[in-house]
Design a protein around this nucleic acid. Sequence first.
DNA 1: GTCTATAAGATGATAGAC
DNA 2: GTCTATCATCTTATAGAC
Lengths: 206, 206
Amino acid sequence: MRAALDTVREDGLAAASARTIAARAEVNQALIFYHFQTVSGLLEAASNRAVDESVAHYREAFAGSESLTDLLGVGRALHDRERRNGNVALMAQLMSGARQDPVLARASHYAVSAWTDEIAVALDRLLATSPVADLVDSAGLADAVAAGFIGLELYDGVDPDGASRALETLGSLAQLIDVVDGLGPVARRALRTQLGAASRPNRSRR
Amino acid sequence: MRAALDTVREDGLAAASARTIAARAEVNQALIFYHFQTVSGLLEAASNRAVDESVAHYREAFAGSESLTDLLGVGRALHDRERRNGNVALMAQLMSGARQDPVLARASHYAVSAWTDEIAVALDRLLATSPVADLVDSAGLADAVAAGFIGLELYDGVDPDGASRALETLGSLAQLIDVVDGLGPVARRALRTQLGAASRPNRSRR
DNA sequence: GTCTATAAGATGATAGAC
DNA sequence: GTCTATCATCTTATAGAC
C-alpha cells in the first residue's frame, strides 16, 4: 500500500501499474491481484487508510481551535504539511482518475468527505457566534476549501508562480472574513443591511 | 484535433490513445504520428487552438464589463458555458497529466496563462477605482479563480452536491467583495485601518 | 502467501506500399 | 497524405508450482 501511494505521489496515476508498484515494493506483481483483486482496489484500500490516519492526526487541532483565525492557522499548517508530503498531489491524481474508474471515484469521495466533514464540524462550532454565519454555509465553505486545495495543487504543477500568487491573494481575502468576524454589533448590522441590498435571493429573512 | 479533445473530454486522458482518437476521427492511427509526432503533440496542438478560440470568444465581454459586478457576471457565464461544453474537464485532465508529460505541461501552461492574462487585464482596469485594490492583487485573483474552476471540476466528478454547495458559498463570499467595492470613502478608511490591524506583514505601507 | 509462467490484449511508434 | 503491416513493449489478470 505504501508503494502504491508513493508511486502515485511521485510519478502520477498513469505510472501506477501493477508492475511498477510491485517493483517498488519488491514483491511480485501477481500479489496485488491476490490481495486486492485489481490495481484500483489496492489504490482505494491504501488511500482510505492514509486518509484515516491523516484526518485523525488533525482532529485535536481542529477541536482545539477557538476562533476562525485559529482555524485558519490550522488550515494553513494542514495545507502546508499535506502538500509537502504529497497527499494533495495524490488526491488530485485520484480525483482525475475518478472520471473513468468507479473504484477511484469511491476512494476520492471517501477522502474528500473525511476531510470536509471534519472541517465543517469545526466551522459550525466557531461560526455560531460570528456574523460570518450570516454570509456562508459551513459545509459549503469546507467544500470550497477542499476544492481550492486540489485546484491549487494542479495549478502548481503547471504554473508554480501563479499558484503562489493565488495562495497569497486567497490569504488576503481570508483576512476580510477575519475582519468581519471581529466586527462590533453596530457594524454587523450595517454590513447585514448592505448585503441585503446587494441582491441575494437565496436566503430567507428572519 | 476535434476527436482528440472530445476523447479527453468524454473519456479522460487515460483513454486518449492514438488508436481510440483515430477511431473516433475515422482515420488511421499512423496519421497522428505523421502529423503530430506524438499523441501529446496532437493534444497540445488541439488544446492550444481550442483555447485561442474560447478566449477570443470572451474578449469583448471582458473588455465591455464596467464594474466588478459586471465582471463577476461574465465570469459566471464563462464558467457555466466552459463547464457545460467540457472544456474545464479537459483542462483538469491535461493538468493532471502535466505532472509526468512536459508537452502536456506546456499545453496546460499556455491554456492557463491565456485565460488568466485576459482576466487580470479586466481586473486591473476595474480595480483601479475600487478599495478592493488595496486588498488583492489582480494577477493573484485571476490565478485563484482559474485554480478554483479546476478544483471545482474535479470535485464535481467526485461529489456533485459538495461542488454545488461550494460554488454557492463562493458566490456569497463574492458578494462581500461587492459590498467593499461599493463602500463610501469613510467606510473605506475604517476598513483599511481594520485590515492594517489584522497583522499583515506582506504589504508595504504608504 | 509468494512465486514463475503465460495468456490475451493494448500501446507508441516505424517501414514501406500506394 | 493515407494506408497496411509489423515491432517491441507494456498492460491486467490467471493458472499452477512451491
